[in-house]
Design a protein around this nucleic acid. Sequence first.
DNA 1: TTATTATCCTATAGATTTAGTAGATTGATA
DNA 2: TATCAATCTACTAAATCTATAGGATAATAA
Lengths: 136, 136
Amino acid sequence: MLSKKTKYGLKALTYLASQKENTPVQIAEISEKENISQKFLESILLSLRKSGFLGSKKGKGGGYYLIKYPKEILMTDVMRILEGPIAMVPCVSLNFYEKCDDCPDEATCSVNKLMLMVRDANLDVYRNNTLADLII
Amino acid sequence: MLSKKTKYGLKALTYLASQKENTPVQIAEISEKENISQKFLESILLSLRKSGFLGSKKGKGGGYYLIKYPKEILMTDVMRILEGPIAMVPCVSLNFYEKCDDCPDEATCSVNKLMLMVRDANLDVYRNNTLADLII
DNA sequence: TTATTATCCTATAGATTTAGTAGATTGATA
DNA sequence: TATCAATCTACTAAATCTATAGGATAATAA
């Protein structure tokens, strides 16, 4: 299952990307328009800012705004921040590799074999889609 | 993340599929060879039996065995039983469709659009792999 | 300088899911 | 009958998810 965090994060990014001008948009506006709990959205936008997708401005006229063009924001990067590793098991993860402690040999592991194919299929989707591609 | 249930279930199925003869194999043997908690494996094998992948036999010489050829066991079916829906959001699920209550229109939803592509990519993998393909 | 606005930050709480355990029961075999 | 192994029910511990609360900080405007 996709977490609500990821779902809300994607919706917020899309909302920002579809603004005519790239001026700050307040959390309150996004949360209202996209039906997202404001406090929860707050923490999501904060983490998106800390990972370099968003800029922010405090005080009146403040809010969040994209600091890259939607075309330059890859889904691989967004998903890794919001949802975590793209691989479903650490032993096939490119960025978060870890050996399974219960598995004696990856080369003969059926789970490894299947999840490697799944990872590649997912990567293919995320690498070939940017935030711009999600706007309808 | 892939649940341990799915991981263990896949390992158990592969273990059964790689037996020379299709005679019953005891839970204890599988749990030992694959490093799986026996009691947990018990419940996993039970659900695989109830969903028509395995047969079982009680008493001496009893155990679990495949009731189909590995070649005939599609990963789509296995994954749906062990892990649940293949889609990451209900609104793009083929077998477990549900409308999102917070989303006014699927046709203009960015999450829907992305997750539809992800679902198709995953389905493609699971549909084109059987249990036989996982044996190394 | 003061009031207002809106993000920033820490801590916490409730609900759900996951992973595993305990123990009694049922049925098959020798 | 004794033994073996699956079946079934119930329970628990831990982790994760989805928030919520409330104050701190910074920018702007009067």
